[in-house]
Design a protein around this nucleic acid. Structure first.
Lengths: 150, 150
DNA sequence: ATTGAATAGTACGAACTTCGTTTTAACTTC
DNA sequence: GAAGTTAAAACGAAGTTCGTACTATTCAAT
């Protein structure tokens, strides 16, 4: 029989197992369907990069690297691929001519929108089995989890 | 002003945006810390493979491939790497000598346990900011989401 | 029995990624 | 203006995925 303090302060083993199993199934079930419509598919890093630039026009490679927690050279490769596909443009800003200001081309914007839309569809499918009240609650809790500082 | 039916049947755009943002932060915050203790680190596929074999001793490569939704040859590579590291053993079963029955070595089992433990720690950290009642509820909802058939 | 098709798995190689090291270019500062 | 710092890219090594081709068995049907 568990002590009161344990029940209050830490999740039970059963709960951890359930959550683990759920996330496991999660990853497999909601793995986004490798670019059905688009001609050439982008890998995960490139998608993340594209979306970051969409949200932060004029940012530099280093900003992205910091945000995604990968080495600078890795982002350099990613932006290279995206530029080569015509999705992203590099500009030398007048202020600091070492820097590079990134922004999306029209194609790049369309692609970013498509990715976000696919992402949103997944979210929609996930929320569907919940009742409106549950949805509200679920989002509240997951937001709490994510915003919580260690 | 939204119609009643919409409010009831589909998540709102705000909800989708919140959930999307939460998962986004999720992936970055709870990215497991690349094998701190272990000598050599395994990539994600190899970890998944190891854990599948731990849970299904005697299974074959094809079973794993089906489960993880990747080509057979990819699993062949993965089991190769794991065998080379001494984490996994291949046996020819008497019943069908084309097949291969996979099982973990002692090292493999230990490694699988460590991975599961790390995974569980992440789950623990996630549940921590929630109250006991919220935890129960959260797990109930996420289980409902995952088990729901389209 | 024998031949043909199906099945489990592997070998091999091409294409692609990540990321460390090195290099280039442009500020800073003293 | 010389030295150090910073942004970014070039280059290359190591490792991954996955398609094609191949081997070894088993099954099926005549």
């Amino acid at each position: 029989m568990p002590r009161y303090a344990d029940v209050m302060s830490t999740p039970t083993d059963d709960q951890l197992a359930s959550l683990g199993a759920a996330f496991d199934a999660f990853a497999r079930r909601y793995k986004l369907p490798d670019e059905l419509g688009s001609e050439t598919q982008l890998n995960e890093l490139d998608k993340q990069t594209l979306i970051y630039v969409a949200d932060h026009p004029g940012c530099g490679p280093t900003d992205i690297a910091r945000f995604l927690a990968v080495p600078n050279t890795t982002i350099s490769s990613a932006t290279d691929r995206l530029a080569k596909r015509g999705l992203l443009e590099r500009h030398r800003p007048e202020g600091d001519r070492r820097a590079v200001a990134l922004q999306l081309s029209a194609d790049g914007k369309a692609r970013a929108d498509a990715i976000v839309a696919a992402y949103r569809d997944i979210c929609r499918r996930m929320l569907e089995p919940l009742s409106p009240a549950e949805r509200k609650n679920f989002i509240r809790m997951i937001t709490k989890i994510v915003h919580h500082e260690d």
